[in-house]
């Protein structure tokens, strides 16, 4: 396929996705109840704090902060980060269903999706290759250097997700798409 074919294929795919999202009841729900959107946003911000507070804390420890905390013990806070991420995946999906155009025709959304994807691959690499090397570590012991890099990448990506997410509203598409 030529470049033009690809572009039109992607565009038709995107239009299908917009139509499908608009047809879901989740979008209707948010658009019907005035306070649904602000309440979902509040949950999204609380979820963000949980995620950064626990996963970000683990990342900081990997990077060398508070070395007397044993890494495997600190890992026990990670379920709170997963809870935060789940809250945000749910509320984020709700936003997309309620206003698909605002997201799918927005550069900032694709930056956010990219940062999220890198964070996802990064966490998969951590658990597949390095988690078992972390488990026996005690107070004062440092993770192997690739795991420290993973911690740094994680922190950077989540900060990137926050930046792109917060800036989304300022890159809203105009109505020319309708």
């Amino acid at each position: 396929m030529s470049r033009g074919d690809w572009a039109s294929w992607l565009e038709s795919w995107r239009q299908q996705l917009v139509l499908w999202l608009e047809s879901t009841p989740a979008g209707d729900f948010v658009n019907t109840y005035t306070w649904a959107w602000p309440i979902a946003e509040s949950f999204h911000f609380v979820g963000l704090c949980l995620l950064l507070g626990t996963v970000g804390l683990f990342d900081l420890r990997l990077l060398g902060f508070a070395r007397q905390i044993p890494l495997p013990q600190l890992h026990r806070l990670i379920p709170w980060g997963i809870a935060g991420f789940s809250i945000n995946a749910a509320t984020g999906s709700l936003f997309m269903a309620a206003a698909p155009f605002q997201y799918l025709y927005n550069e900032s959304f694709y930056f956010k999706a990219t940062f999220l994807s890198v964070a996802g691959v990064n966490v998969a690499v951590f658990y597949l290759l390095f988690y078992r090397k972390i488990v026996p570590l005690g107070a004062g012991e440092q993770a192997p250097w690739p795991a420290r890099i993973i911690g740094g990448v994680s922190l950077l990506m989540w900060i990137g997700v926050m930046c792109a997410g917060r800036l989304l509203t300022f890159y809203r598409p105009s109505f020319r798409f309708f």
Partner: peptide, 13 residues
Amino acid sequence: TIGMAFLVGLTSA
């Protein structure tokens, strides 16, 4: 937002 994440997040942990 970033400041909130660190302030609220770490003190919550």
